[in-house]
Amino acid sequence: RKEMTAACTPRRRIINLTSVLSLQEEINEQGHEVLREMLHNHSFVGCVNPQWALAQHQTKLYLLNTTKLSEELFYQILIYDFANFGVLRLSEPAPLFDLAMLALDSPESGWTEEDGPKEGLAEYIVEFLKKKAEMLADYFSLEIDEEGNLIGLPLLIDNYVPPLEGLPIFILRLATEVNWDEEKECFESLSKECAMFYSIRKQYISEESTLSGQQSEVPGSIPNSWKWTVEHIVYKALRSHILPPKHFTEDGNILQLANLPDLYKVFERC
């Protein structure tokens, strides 16, 4: 597991931080080997919608929660590849102030007048994250320049770009939802926020969305749709870069829909 690298990086740093090793061990302890084997050997059937997909393993048909699986995938990559990410360069710098204002204007932020003026909160978020810029760049390849612009994001899987519609809320939550006081809790909560931002979430995906850094293989055609990215990038990574937690067998994120021999018997009677 320590050699797990989802995106190509030129050289690998050895990380011996106790906090990170502890988080890696927790993933191992909570892992479910049968689910790992199923995901490793599954045959992708198709997307139901951005949140759900169908896959077959041996004779069984499964309904998989793409949102939760991708979130767990990105969390584990962030923990196992800690401080070893490439950088996704933004085509132009994104001012943190503008991103924070967009987030505060969104109902998702939960902002009320009692929280104070949005401009003041946005300025605080910019200054707060600028103070964390060195650590964010060093460990997470999340790059913020001296003017308070976001200029780079971590490359977690080759050819995958997170849904940038979720970027404003991500920046807001970096400042408000991460435990910045304790090292282990900081790395864990920061990785979880980043994983949620990178995950496939239906509120940020339309039929026209593209999450891939590449064009489709047909010359002159439109960019790959999110469905292509889910199948050929995300579920491909799920084959080798995730140890599913045991609770996925109990919380409805992986559901067995049918045993195909039983279905064949039904059709034979028709």
Rank of each mutant, 00 (worst) to 15 (best):
G152Q: 07
S206G: 09
T59V: 11
Y124G: 01
R1L: 12
I27L: 12
Y62A: 13
I14L: 07
W111E: 02
E183P: 02
K236D: 13
D105C: 07
N28F: 14
P95N: 07
S22G: 14
P244M: 14
Q214P: 05
V266E: 15
V234S: 01
H42Y: 13
K2M: 13
L153N: 00
S141T: 08
E182G: 03
Y198R: 00
E134V: 04
A7F: 15
C47Y: 04
P10H: 13
P50W: 06
P93M: 02
K184P: 03
K60V: 11
L69K: 00
R239E: 14
Y160Q: 00
D145L: 01
F267R: 03
V45M: 02
S109E: 10
L17V: 04
G110C: 02
T66N: 11
L238A: 07
A7N: 10
G220S: 07
L88W: 06
F197R: 00
L136C: 14
Q76Y: 09
T176E: 12
G116V: 15
L238Q: 07
K132Y: 13
H42I: 11
E108K: 02
E119T: 07
G46Q: 02
T59M: 07
Y204Q: 07
L99R: 00
G220N: 09
G166T: 11
S206Y: 09
E185F: 12
P107E: 11
W111G: 13
E185L: 06
I77R: 06
G116Q: 02
M38V: 08
R11Y: 14
V20D: 15
L61I: 05
R12V: 10
R89D: 13
G213P: 04
L164Q: 03
L156K: 00
H57L: 08
G220A: 08
E146L: 05
C47F: 03
C47D: 02
R11C: 14
A175V: 15
P154D: 00
A53K: 00
C186Y: 02
L61W: 02
H232S: 11
T67V: 11
L136G: 01
K68Y: 10
P163K: 07
L102M: 06
T66G: 01
L121W: 11
E127M: 12
E165G: 03
L142D: 00
Q215V: 06
I254G: 03
E182H: 03
L190C: 03
F44L: 09
I200A: 11
G252H: 08
D158F: 08
Y124I: 10
R13P: 12
L155F: 07
S206F: 13
N224I: 09
P95W: 12
F170S: 00
E165N: 04
Y124R: 01
I242F: 12
E123I: 14
F267S: 01
S216N: 06
F97N: 02
A55E: 01
C270G: 15
S199K: 06
E147T: 06
S225H: 07
E146W: 14
P245E: 15
S91G: 06
N179K: 03
M135Y: 06
L174Y: 00
H42T: 13
K131L: 13
E72W: 12
Q24H: 13
N159L: 09
H232W: 15
E217D: 10
I79N: 13
K227P: 09
S216V: 10
K227F: 08
L69R: 00
L238G: 04
L39W: 15
L238N: 01
K2L: 13
I233E: 12
T249D: 06
P162K: 00
S191K: 11
G148E: 06
